[in-house]
Design a protein around this nucleic acid. Sequence first.
DNA 1: AAAAACTTTTTAAAATTTTAAAAAAGAATT
DNA 2: AATTCTTTTTTAAAATTTTAAAAAGTTTTT
Lengths: 405, 405
Amino acid sequence: MGNPKYHVLIANSDTIKSLYYNKVLTSGEVSSYTGKSIPHVIKVLTELKNKGYIEERGLATSTGGRKPITYSLVAKSHYIVSVAIDRHSASLVMVDMNNNFIGEVEQHEFDLHHLSADNLVDIISAFIGNSSVAKSKIIGLGLTMPGFVDTVKGINYTYMNLRDDSLVDFIQRHLHLPVFIDNDSTAIALAEQKFGVAANSKNAMVLNLGWGIGLGMILNDQIFRGDNGLAGEFSHIPLFKNGKLCDCGKHGCLETEASFVAIVANAKEAIGNGETTSLANYPELNADRIIEEAIKGDRFAVKLISEAAYHVGEGLAILIHLMNPRIILLSGKGSVVGKIWLAPIQQALNEHCIPMLTSFTEIAISDLNNRAQLIGGAALVIESLGKTFQDKLDTLKAEPVNQIH
Amino acid sequence: MGNPKYHVLIANSDTIKSLYYNKVLTSGEVSSYTGKSIPHVIKVLTELKNKGYIEERGLATSTGGRKPITYSLVAKSHYIVSVAIDRHSASLVMVDMNNNFIGEVEQHEFDLHHLSADNLVDIISAFIGNSSVAKSKIIGLGLTMPGFVDTVKGINYTYMNLRDDSLVDFIQRHLHLPVFIDNDSTAIALAEQKFGVAANSKNAMVLNLGWGIGLGMILNDQIFRGDNGLAGEFSHIPLFKNGKLCDCGKHGCLETEASFVAIVANAKEAIGNGETTSLANYPELNADRIIEEAIKGDRFAVKLISEAAYHVGEGLAILIHLMNPRIILLSGKGSVVGKIWLAPIQQALNEHCIPMLTSFTEIAISDLNNRAQLIGGAALVIESLGKTFQDKLDTLKAEPVNQIH
DNA sequence: AAAAACTTTTTAAAATTTTAAAAAAGAATT
DNA sequence: AATTCTTTTTTAAAATTTTAAAAAGTTTTT
């Protein structure tokens, strides 16, 4: 069964993680991240260096003493495949051990409802085959997508639900690679926690402003997924008595007033009533077009987003009362026009929150934007190094992973 | 500085905690709770036994092998003072190391808005003085109360806010005991996690059904307090467009429809309109009277609670979408009539939740009832053993705790 | 009743990890 | 330029903790 790279990565997972998330660290810094003593950390670093996993990166500056040696992971020693799926497309990218994207992000368009697990395996297989990276250097695949995802069982109850089989097991069998799955919004939160604006926040709410409004949560420095991985259904909290039917079958979900689902519906209705806007020029409207026109300055597009933003703020007021987060971070594709969301959200919070609570919570805009989900998918694989990864290899003993190499 | 009892308790805090929460354990069980090997655990247990902290409790049964020795904490080796405050009273009790209440629970009535820190110190001081327990055997005091509580700074922003001083530091200086403070609902959640129905739930929402509706959260097996200890303001989530003014200054809080605040207001209004109910016999109505009459079977009292319960259910529907808890536990004084709350809550969830989510969440009723907060206060002291306790002793070095002994 | 099977406890050796002190390297000060 | 101070790295000893094997105690089976 044994591929030695896994043993080394798993046995030293805390050190590997700290270097992956921080790029360049001194032995002292690794010591504080891992909670181990410096002599011990230096022993581990030396061993990892000798095995080719990490390399020295020169001396750091000092304020009056010996300059510390810095270390980082050897970027091209291993790779991770990140597959980010949304309701209408998949993005695939190869990520190296310094969290760099290798080559172009590959895009595929489809309707997620009609995507089969076979289709997906073919897409990923071809991507890996066409890449410049030897398959033996790939340590795993991070698959992130909307829906009710059980990360432990490897099942997405909403999409590609295989009944008798787990989606993750299915893909693993065909690709002979360890595969890890997570919800798209959770992946975005993970990316923001490790590489984004939420990096130093013990408690953060990360909004995925997309077709719906996803929510990824960082609580007590941990990603929170709920008891079955189904937490963060912000889009479907029952908030309005508007009678509007939601995709989920209920009425009055936040999504019916506050997401691009609502924005597009409102746009179409207003255009039908003769609203003068550049949006009227498009035969078919979607989130991307409205975002584009809002950036160009179309007043009506901005107004539509602002109205939705106020309703998002009403939902966030609830969230703040319940969770008392350090930061609420606007991320996902809609955050490209983050500034438009900001003022109405703040307005809603002023009206609906206890002032003491809002005073402790900052509202911020992501700088990872549409790369967040892909970064999160790769981080998901790194994050699972350690016990989760070992358990996966153990369960795959009978049917070994990576036997092709 | 040193009182040796603290050193032993702190150095072996994981073992002490596992025994306090589980009463009687074998070495193997302590090993799995603490994550240490059996030879190591046995060494620790032997040492604690020799020092008089724990004792053997005979052999446990076996299904075909050597019977394991069981251990528990020596009940009378040390004590904890638990002080549970609500809006109108304080309860004090002495708790031994087996989580037994020693002597009677002492009650004091007041309006919390008019209680000063000096008053409180006097009450606690007299209670300790009148108790049968030697002060040197008391390891600490757990103070639990409503309001915005910062457990780290030891401040309650809502009540007894001393401006230039922290409430906890103030009490410590006067009692010469380590003091730990927490929000009432959080304490109840802690009690339910360690000794109640939520004991085996990784994720639990514990409702404190009282004058307001408090919420204590257990997430990923940890008590969650938010970034500043202000999480769980379930009572004040803005949910209704009813225009009703809430104590907090906002309109339409959950509390305005779903708590005993609302129940009492609705009762008074209906009685004014001639409603026939045994509640009409009371000159002054409060939560306790309505609960009493509901238990006796007064139909109107039951109807009032049921209406409030439905609105609580509307709030819980939001909570389930956000948190995907394993269990929602009805606790606090209102849970004495838990069955009355249950059906309307379930009804609201059926109407407002995605069925997949409700299928994973159980609604249950506490069996700790009004003892929960006191148990939680004592558990708070035990839970802080380890780093938190050590930090407290360190900051008190200059002004030593327990120097009186 | 003796043997076998099983579980817990004890013992001893091995490993991991930390502490403390010394050495090395660089910056600041005289 | 030499000295002093600071920080990092290395070394060696001490401690903690685990692993593996043996011993002890109970129950089940023969």
